[in-house]
Each structure stands twice: as structure tokens, then as C-alpha cells.
């Protein structure tokens, strides 16, 4: 399941933004507004210590969350080692370690 996370671009799996539940997205934006600064450059994912072992992709994950796609997030987020390299390379100054921590909390509190 998690392995296919985000890869399938089938018609039936288009992002239905209107219907998606954006509760976690709202929680994230409210508690770590710097997430809005992301320009999707991928630096974080490329440098990610976890990403060197597995298909964990922090950029894709938080982008999905902002679109209300949260199905696989719960399992994915658990892979992060918290080393902080992503934050150190982000050209936009996104506070990424707190993004992860906030997503963790959002999942805990909001399902």
C-alpha cells in the first residue's frame, strides 16, 4: 500500500480537492505556517537520510496533505529519523522538523 503511495496517476485517483478532508492540512498550516513557503524544489527529499533507504518522500507527503490526500500519511510519517538535513537545505526556510512533528500531532488528534 504505502509502497505505491503517490505513484499511481490513474483517472480514478485524481485528487478530488473539493471532497477531500483538509482538516490535517488546516492544522498543519495553522501550527507551522512556513509550510506555505514550499516551492517544491525537492531539496529536502534529495538529502533525506531516510530517503536513502526507502521511498519516503517528505516533499510529496506534505504536498499531498495540503491537497487533502492523507490516506497513507500515517504509515509514511513514521519513517522519519528527524536528522534535520531537510531543514538545513531548504531554500525557503521551511521549518521541516516541526512540519513532521505537527503532522504527527495532527494524525494523533484528528485521526
Amino acid at each position: 500500500m504505502a509502497k505505491n503511495f503517490g505513484y499511481k496517476i490513474l483517472p480514478g485517483e485524481s485528487i478530488d480537492f473539493d471532497r477531500n478532508d483538509k482538516l490535517i492540512a488546516r492544522y498543519l498550516v495553522e501550527h507551522e505556517p512556513s509550510i506555505n513557503l514550499c516551492i517544491g524544489c525537492g531539496s529536502c527529499t534529495a538529502t533525506c537520510s531516510t530517503g536513502h533507504f526507502t521511498d519516503f518522500n517528505i516533499r510529496r507527503m506534505h504536498t499531498f496533505i495540503l491537497r487533502g490526500e492523507t490516506k497513507h500519511i500515517k504509515k509514511e510519517i513514521q519513517k522519519c529519523m528527524f536528522c534535520g538535513k531537510c531543514q538545513l537545505v531548504c531554500p525557503r526556510g521551511v521549518n521541516l522538523r516541526n512540519v513532521i512533528l505537527t503532522i504527527n500531532r495532527a494524525i494523533e488528534h484528528l485521526g
Binding site: 537520510s49 536513502h52 533507504f53 529519523m81 528527524f82 536528522c83 534535520g84 522538523r97 512533528l101
Partner: peptide
Amino acid sequence: KSICCGRPLKLA
């Protein structure tokens, strides 16, 4: 590749 030492997690 490197496995993180663990301290960043501890700090969280």
C-alpha cells in the same frame, strides 16, 4: 547512506 545517531529524535 547514514543512519541518524538518534539524538535529533531524542530532542523531539
